[in-house]
Amino acid sequence: MAELIIFSLLHGLVYGLLLFMLASGLTLIFSMMGVLNFAHASIYMLGAYVAYTISQYVGFWPGLIIAPVVVGLFGALVERYGLRHVHKYGHVAELIFTFGLAFLIEEFVQLIWGKQTVGYHEPAVLAVPLFEMYGQTFPAYKAFMLLVSVAIFIVLLVVLTRSRVGLIINAAITHPSMVSMLGHNVPMVFMGVFGVGSALAALAGVIAGPSLGTSPGMAVLLGPIVFVVIVVGGLGSLIGAFVASLLIGMMTTFAVAIDYSFGQFFMDVGLNMDPDGVLSDLYTVTIAQLGPIMPYMLLVLILIFRPTGLFGTREV
């Protein structure tokens, strides 16, 4: 039991913080520009592939730095020369634009790198177990992922709450035109936020690639969950995104570890069920099998009982 809790906690933390790296950019972009960026997860995937290619030539570590920078610049250009022009046609046009971008990136990735999972691996130093407990090992690479995402979280927090740029971003979330009339270049701040948000997504992709597999499906695997995270946390709320990321991260990893079925539950609470009855299929469903749909169940519950999300102020 202790083993299950410790390992699930650790894995949940790794997964949750990875989600946060994506969700933080997505929710910031949304709250500043009012755009739900459907291409965000595709940018995450692009980060992994770009880093993979760089790692082929100069190794893992340079890729870890260069790929987010390259993809971040790409994001900034997308905002400057794409989104900014689409903006005047309204939010629907912007939404469709990011949709198109998501497909474009996906096709591009398949064109360049193919449909198969590419062999993007962690560096040898990290391809070892960090520690062993109750016969289970915890990989050093997961600890590294944890380290990177915690560092990013701290940097983000400090920049947003302590720096002048953070002040400008916070003010521009509610009053963009007032901020620019005080002499701050708000369009450039928007471009910067989009760029940095993309870079963070790419960095998430870079560190997730060797662990979760670098394949054309990785965007679709994580994208919907990240949307769930920002809706559950409250659109536009960074704290909400953080809490929801960890919540969903923990929930999914714990669920996977629990081998407990409804039939078992009914038996434990003293109800005797007919194992061959009409509902017998339901009885054999285990919590582990429910794991992947749990975020969506949470989403539905939140939308019913708290449409603004946990920390949000506006309704979805």
Binding site: N170, H175, S180, L182, G183, H184, P187
Partner: peptide, 20 residues
């Protein structure tokens, strides 16, 4: 652009106050 105009030395105090 508004921020360029502000930098030239023109200030504006809006009626709805727009504090952050």
């Amino acid at each position: 652009k508004p921020h360029e105009i502000a930098h030239m030395g023109l200030g504006y105090v809006p009626e709805n106050r727009d504090i952050f």
